[in-house]
């Protein structure tokens, strides 16, 4: 394809129930840097029903130069085909060189469908994105092959260069209400044949448990704990620190913890102030989800475990004995104050 006419960075601004999601602002924060290094505009596309200029302005305040509103009553609730039509219309109208979509369950449904339709590449779950000097190609880096390897992917001959980025990986910009941008409305026609899936029921489940992505302290357990009983003992320690318990993929696969607790490439990305890795060996797929934590403590009886290479403080010892000892030590420290 002729790629010369494709310019700018486009971000799909996901909304649910009319609420623009945090991932939209994170993508704008990251996209701003890319757009600046290319000296090209940053465009946000907001798809929904009854969209307001105020919502568009928020996207501008968070970095967008232009906001494209695709507004249609049939776009109120996410559906694959109507949303694909909307985003493809925006791509065709504005011909961006780069397209970012959040790696949410909506983004991971929408982005591949869009990439197949416009015949371009899509790189999933990128952890780093930068422009290559000279070629100006987007270098999309992601953990690959079970997380052992980082792979940098390029999409040299197709546009837009699309990638998905998971929530929590990029940082949004400080809101700046003095920023200005252009707001445009892009009409789209949604036909009956675009609606092949009928939504019978929408159930919003209030997260009963607090989300591990929001915790400031995480006590995280791995297979090295040996069994579910030992894993459950981490809660005492987490309570002592006012934090939550999270887990490695091995623990979730073993059924000791629910999938909502999983940290890592296929789980959640977290960056708490304190991350205590208990009996976690530290596969890259896990590291990818927690390496930006402020202070990382690793406890493992195997001195050769890779986790120690990422930890700010490492203790080589029997983790199942350390956990209760640490809880006790913390109680004692509190009592002193």
């Amino acid at each position: 394809m002729d790629i010369s006419g494709y310019k700018g960075v486009m971000v799909f601004a996901e909304q649910r129930r009319g609420q623009v999601q945090k991932i939209a602002y994170e993508l704008l924060g990251m996209g701003r840097g890319i757009a600046d290094s290319l000296e090209e505009p940053l465009v946000a596309v907001l798809v929904g029903a009854g969209l307001t200029d105020a919502q568009a302005a928020e996207l501008v305040y968070h970095g967008a130069d232009k906001v494209v509103l695709v507004d249609h009553p049939e776009l109120a609730v996410y559906m694959t085909e109507p949303y694909t039509k909307a985003l493809v219309a925006a791509i065709e109208a504005f011909k961006p060189g780069i397209g970012f979509v959040g790696a949410t369950t909506i983004g991971r449904d929408l982005a591949p469908r869009v990439s197949a339709r416009v015949k371009t590449g899509l790189t999933a779950d990128c952890t780093s994105l930068e422009v290559e000097d000279g070629t100006r190609n987007l270098m999309m880096t992601r953990p690959a092959f079970g997380g052992n390897i980082m792979a940098t992917i390029i999409c040299p001959e197709h546009r837009p260069q699309m990638s998905t980025v998971r929530p929590g990986v990029m940082r949004k910009l400080e809101r700046d209400p003095s920023r200005t941008g252009e707001i445009v409305r892009l009409p789209v026609e949604i036909l009956p044949e675009d609606k092949n899936v009928e939504i019978l029921e929408v159930v919003v489940e209030k997260a009963a448990k607090k989300n591990i992505e929001e915790a400031t302290v995480l006590v995280s357990g791995g297979r090295g704990l040996g069994n579910a009983e030992n894993f459950n003992r981490l809660h005492v320690l987490a309570d002592e620190l006012g934090g939550l318990v999270s887990a490695s993929r091995a623990v979730v696969d073993a059924g000791w913890a629910g999938a909502d607790r999983q940290v890592g490439q296929t789980g959640k990305t977290v960056r708490p102030d304190l991350y205590i890795a208990c009996g976690i060996s530290g596969m890259i797929q896990h590291i990818a989800g927690m390496e930006d934590s402020e202070f990382i403590v690793a406890v493992n009886k195997n001195a050769g475990a890779p986790i120690f290479e990422y930890a700010d403080l490492g203790i080589v010892t029997d983790v199942n004995k350390l956990v209760p000892a640490l809880a006790e030590e913390l109680r004692a420290a509190k009592a002193e104050r």
């Binding site: 899509l122 390897i149 999409c155 197709h158 290479e309 990422y310």
Partner: peptide, 14 residues
């Protein structure tokens, strides 16, 4: 394939 693996590497450590 529109995408190419430009390079792959074992992740460096901090």
């Amino acid at each position: 394939s529109p995408t190419r693996v430009k390079k792959s590497y074992t992740k460096g450590t901090k």
